[in-house]
């Protein structure tokens, strides 16, 4: 589903190279964890996948279902089914969460040539999804992310992910700022989305999240490249020995 080939990318403004020859393949149905020390390029990778303009791809390609997505803007990529759950979701004052969900869902449907959702159907989907994430409907009348706690923001991200039904989910440090209860709820939300036709990329700093979202593959990112790949035991190994050992091996 996702194939990243020899990707090189830099910050458009100052030319600093962040991604340096990254290769990664994630199949449909797979949950891939990307781990790595601070500054290894994890968040940058998530932004580049989603199409953020601040980064410039200088070499290599990103194929999604066999097609390059480099020329698509963020909205076009989203409509094709790529979703990024942000580490720091933005506040959108004056736009009720509910309203935002409806616009986003309908814009994506429109881009795919589907009919707009009827209000009762929309309401039903939102209620069901919010229920599973233990979210209060009253919260959804509030402006998106404005005054939400860290946990509420992350839950709102997963809610959007559920409702938009993406094919490729990228979760950027979704565990940061979550207490253990919230972590469980969010993880359950993600696990419920696992399906044979969907790929999930979990970017995280710690093993902790992977106790709840058990990955099929684990990739270690360092200096903009994947330096080691393995199964879930690799994450445990990292937790016990730190990154130094693997970095040493690679060097």
């Amino acid at each position: 589903m996702l194939e990243i080939k020899n990707l090189h990318a830099r910050i458009a403004e100052d030319g600093t190279e962040i991604i340096r020859g990254l290769n990664l393949t994630v199949k449909a149905g797979e949950v891939a964890a990307i781990m790595g020390p601070n500054g290894s390029g994890k968040s940058t990778l998530s932004y580049i996948l989603a199409g953020r303009e601040d980064y410039e791809v200088t070499e290599g390609d990103i194929l999604y279902n066999g097609e390059s997505i480099l020329d698509l803007d963020p909205a076009e990529r989203a409509a094709k089914g790529i979703f990024l759950a942000f580490q720091y979701p933005m506040e959108i004052p004056g736009v009720a969460t509910m309203e935002f969900l409806k616009v986003a869902m309908n814009e994506q449907r429109k881009a795919r040539g589907e009919e707009e959702l009827k209000i009762p159907e929309f309401m039903k989907r939102v209620k069901d999804a919010a229920g599973l994430l233990s979210m209060d409907m009253g919260m959804l009348k509030r402006p998106l992310n404005v005054g939400f706690s860290g946990g509420e923001k992350k839950r709102a991200e997963i809610l959007q992910m559920k409702l938009l039904e993406p094919k490729l989910c990228v979760l950027d440090e979704t565990d940061s700022g979550l207490d253990i209860d919230a972590l469980k709820i969010v993880s359950e939300g993600v696990n419920a989305l696992r399906s044979p036709d969907r790929a999930i990329v979990v970017i995280t700093h710690y093993q902790r999240l992977l106790d709840y979202i058990v990955p099929d593959s684990v990739h270690v990112l360092y200096k903009g490249r994947v330096i080691k790949s393995g199964d879930k035991t690799l994450a445990r190994q990292l937790e016990e020995n730190g990154y130094a050992e693997i970095i040493g091996e690679a060097a």
């Binding site: 989603a50 199409g51 953020r52 303009e53 803007d73 963020p74 909205a75 990529r77 989203a78 409509a79 979703f83 990024l84 942000f86 979701p89 933005m90 959108i92 935002f100 616009v103 986003a104 814009e107 994506q108 881009a111 959007q160 938009l164």
Partner: peptide
């Protein structure tokens, strides 16, 4: 970027 990432054109 955040709003566009949800599929809403610029």
């Amino acid at each position: 970027f955040y709003v566009m990432q949800r599929g809403i054109p610029e």
